[in-house]
């Protein structure tokens, strides 16, 4: 389980996170929803210790992040995190060199699934294909948790469909996933849990099937209530 307890953070005078608490369980897809600039990406970075927090606590499987944690949790930012000059195969070698959890077989499998060519240079890929390679770099790690920042934003419809397919496959099964989005429509029925964020605070955290069952509301219905109410 990934737990955030009362996490706060300031950028200069601007309070970006004002006491954020929520949990993301293994085997579930948790979706952080909020318009751009409400602190979604900051939360992801904070979990990965890529930006310091001012107060509060972040636990991964009950312990604070340490170097070993990067074999248990990975982050797929919204832009690829490899040198653009690398070929896909070189990027894979880099990952294999540094991560024990890198699963080359799975990486190759994903490469096939996405119809990509490992001799292609990252800088020469289309936007959609770059996003796919970026995704592979995270998904081919045998980690417990995967954080994804806006995996669907700014890419073509077919790439979106292919990426959505990943969520219903064994690649995600049994892992814990946190994804951020400002656009829930595409993935509403894919997620287990929604965390609504606004202005650095969590407005609501709920199980999507439960809210449909008990209140007959869609995620968008709840968002409408929470954000407009």
């Amino acid at each position: 389980m990934i737990e955030l307890k009362n996490v706060t953070k300031k950028f200069g005078k601007k309070q970006v996170l004002k006491g954020v608490s929520f949990t993301a369980e293994k085997g579930k897809i948790t979706c952080l929803i909020g318009i751009n600039g409400v602190g979604k990406t900051t939360i992801m970075k904070a979990i990965m210790a890529l930006t310091p927090i001012d107060s509060g606590e972040i636990l991964i499987n009950g312990e604070t992040l340490n170097k070993g944690s990067y074999e248990k949790v990975t982050f797929i930012p919204d832009a690829i995190t490899m040198l653009p000059s690398m070929k896909i195969s070189e990027a894979f070698t880099f990952m294999a060199d540094f991560y024990n959890s890198w699963n080359m077989e799975r990486a190759k499998e994903l490469l096939n699934f996405f119809n990509l060519n490992e001799t292609d240079r990252i800088s020469e890929l289309s936007k959609g294909n770059t996003a796919k390679v970026n995704l592979i770099l995270g998904l081919a790690l045998d980690v417990d948790y995967i954080l994804m920042d806006e995996p669907f934003s700014g890419i073509d419809i077919f790439s979106r469909e292919q990426i959505a397919d990943v969520f219903t496959s064994h690649l995600i099964e049994d892992r814990g996933v946190i994804i951020t989005t400002h656009e829930i429509n595409d993935i509403e029925h894919l997620i287990d849990k929604a965390v609504l964020l606004d202005n650095g605070v969590i407005l609501k955290e709920f199980d999507t099937e439960e809210i449909r069952e008990t209140e007959g509301k869609s995620v968008v219905d709840v968002m409408r209530e929470v954000y407009r109410g």
């Binding site: 990965m48 070993g68 944690s69 990067y70 832009a79 040198l83 540094f98 991560y99």
Partner: peptide, 14 residues
């Protein structure tokens, strides 16, 4: 650049 390699570097398990 947009492809900030620092993400990768600081997420290495070392």
């Amino acid at each position: 650049g947009k492809n900030t390699f620092s993400y990768r570097l600081f997420m290495l398990p070392t």
